[in-house]
Structures are given as structure tokens and as C-alpha cells.
């Protein structure tokens, strides 16, 4: 098949475009993959389901140095219905892990609040592991105006 001049131009433009967009896209993907791997390490290879866990974080954080974040898991916290631990990840941080909470029967309810640093606008993820081995996930995007890492 003979390529016309017009077809040739669109093709080259397309390839060049891919190359330009491709690079940062790969980088962003790497961080997301890191987080996914860390989630799998935490759950022991189990795919987490949505529900039970609620992650509360502001939609827009003006200062990435201190972003309030709360987690709450729907559980009776007695007998078999217990939350073992909850882990928080920030996908876009140099080190995605934020904190791991471990609860006990004396916790009364599986709720915790803390403040974290966010480098840029990104997804914040919370994963809960129950005593019976089931895992639950919640995700929220936080827009960050001023990043909280480095300086």
C-alpha cells in the first residue's frame, strides 16, 4: 500500500504524541503500581472489596503538609467481627505508605483520625483487614494546592 503524504503526517504526529505523553504517564503508573503491590503485600494477595470501610479526607487540601484523614470501619469489634488493622496509602507520595493502625477488643470501635503529608494531588487509599481475613478498600482523591514534601 502506498501512503499518501497526509496519512504519513498523521502517523508521525501520532507516534510523536505517544512518545511525549508516554513518559510521565509511565512514571505516574509506576507509583500506582507500587501502591498496588504494597496493598497486595498487606492483604496477602487477596483482592480487596469495597464497602465496610469509610475514608474521610478533604476534597481540596490547601496545605499538603497537614491533611486530616479519618478512617472508620463498620464492625462490632467483638468476637469474630473484629478489625485487625487498617493501612493508609498515598499513591503520589515518594513513599506511598502513610500509617498502619492496629485495633483490639478494647478499641470499642474501629475509628481513627490523624494528619498526613501529601506531595501533590492524588488518590488516598485505605485498606482494612478483618480478623476473619476479608479485606475492604476505600479510595478518595484529594486535590493539593501546596505540596507537603521536600522544600
Amino acid at each position: 500500500m502506498q501512503l499518501t503524504r497526509r496519512q504519513m503526517l498523521t502517523l508521525t504526529a501520532g507516534v510523536a504524541g505517544m512518545a511525549v505523553i508516554g513518559l510521565p504517564f509511565d512514571l505516574a503508573l509506576a507509583a500506582v503500581e507500587d501502591t498496588e503491590k504494597a496493598i497486595m503485600d498487606f492483604t496477602g494477595g487477596k483482592k480487596p472489596e469495597t464497602g465496610k470501610i469509610t475514608l474521610t479526607a478533604p476534597e481540596i487540601a490547601e496545605n499538603g503538609n497537614t491533611v486530616p484523614v479519618s478512617i472508620s470501619v463498620d464492625s462490632a469489634m467483638s468476637g469474630d467481627d473484629m478489625v485487625d488493622s487498617v493501612i493508609i496509602f498515598a499513591e503520589g507520595n515518594p513513599n506511598p505508605q502513610v500509617a498502619t493502625f492496629r485495633f483490639s477488643e478494647l478499641s470499642g470501635s474501629a475509628e481513627a483520625t490523624t494528619r498526613m503529608r501529601l506531595a501533590k494531588t492524588q488518590n488516598v487509599i485505605a485498606v482494612a483487614k478483618m480478623k476473619d481475613g476479608s479485606v475492604f478498600i476505600d479510595k478518595k482523591q484529594v486535590k493539593v494546592t501546596i505540596g507537603g514534601c521536600g522544600g
Binding site: A90, N93, F101, R102, S104, A112, T113, T114, R117
Partner: peptide
């Protein structure tokens, strides 16, 4: 209650539980 902290926790770590 126990918590493992990573560098992403803000200065003057605050916890509510």
C-alpha cells in the same frame, strides 16, 4: 490501639481514636 507511622505523617503527630 497501635500505629506504625511513616514519614508521610505530619509534624506534631496527632491521633484521635
Amino acid at each position: 490501639f497501635e500505629c506504625d507511622l511513616d514519614p508521610a505523617i505530619s509534624a506534631n503527630p496527632y491521633f484521635e481514636f
